[in-house]
Design a protein around this nucleic acid. Structure first.
Lengths: 179, 179
DNA sequence: TTAAGCATGTAATGAGTTACATGATTAG
DNA sequence: CTAATCATGTAACTCATTACATGCTTAA
């Protein structure tokens, strides 16, 4: 769906090997798109076949040897076309909300602990995003339009985590003592 | 992953046929879990085979004839076990955030219109949730624990839509005039 | 009696996850 | 020279989406 476009974006920001991409998807890219290394290698193969990216000539293809990719004009064109294409927001599909609703009909033993665990996870994530924001997006350092866009994407991550911590806090407060 | 549990929850709240379930997934259930009718029929078949649900004896199985399902004890047990099982939050995978980041490298023609379109969609959804909240969860009407849980799930939907409208508004404000 | 739409389903494809396999490089 | 780890990949499976097929019911 959008994995190839995530990879094209990442490679345009900086040509990389499969493993480097994996690392970047675990870190900065991960706050708007996640992917495993298996997905990434598979997709790199497809994109190369489609003529949208190519391996840099330097290191050549034996297994186990690093292979750097860069985006070709066709890849850039495809990405630009995708950015311009309207696409509706995905319907929600959240297991935790579902579990809460299920707890309403079968009882929620241990649910409080689980909510607290999630709260801790989201708080930690929020902290990390805030650190990135302070480090990389101080007011005087955000100059180009690209900076502004990347900042707004990070704001998305921050506000999404804020939503979760807020909702989890309220829900814990509304939950009866030890259900 | 959680589709069978969504169906079990829905059927416990009210025994239904495949089409009725589809309707319910389009409406109230949709704010925490979405599913198409094809998914639902396939999963109903699996759940019946696994002995977790059964078709009510009344109407019998010819194609095109309504078939009502109810949950069996094994199904209720499976759902209770799933509710108690810890499960980490899913990593984020949002196409709109990705598109914004991509716009940073290939330019974002028409992006403003798309953001405004999404903003309108999320605002409308938020309105609908607020109406449901006023109608079904007035303070004096929320009495049982199940009511409280269902209300918190709806609050999740409301706050999630609030997040989107807030973030989209901020992003539109931060976006240069006509990129 | 035929067309509309209600209701259930199949098939094909694509996207994502889990488990495993294999070669290259480097530190001890 | 061998174990750890870096790096790239395959295979099998599950879940989701899209398109299509089939039978029943009812109202013009």
């Amino acid at each position: 769906m959008s994995l190839p476009h995530a990879i094209l974006t990442a490679l345009l920001e900086k040509p990389s090997s499969g493993l480097e991409l994996t690392r970047r998807f675990d870190k900065s890219i991960g706050y708007f798109w996640s992917a495993t290394h298996q997905q990434i290698y598979r997709e790199l193969g497809k994109l190369e076949q489609a003529g949208q990216i190519r391996a840099l000539p330097a290191a050549q293809p034996t297994r186990g040897q690093k292979k750097e990719y860069e985006v070709l004009p066709a890849g850039r064109a495809e990405l630009a076309a995708w950015v311009a294409r309207p696409e509706d927001p995905r319907p929600v599909r959240d297991p935790l909300l579902l579990r809460l609703r299920a707890a309403g009909v079968v009882g929620g033993t241990g649910l409080r602990e689980e909510l607290e665990r999630h709260l801790a996870l989201h708080r930690r994530q929020l902290e990390q995003y805030r650190e990135i924001e302070e480090r990389d997006f101080a007011p005087e350092r955000t100059v180009t339009e690209q900076d502004a866009l990347r900042h707004m994407v990070l704001r998305g991550g921050i506000e999404l985590e804020s939503f979760w911590t807020k909702w989890l806090t309220e829900t814990l407060a509304a939950l009866p003592a030890t259900p």
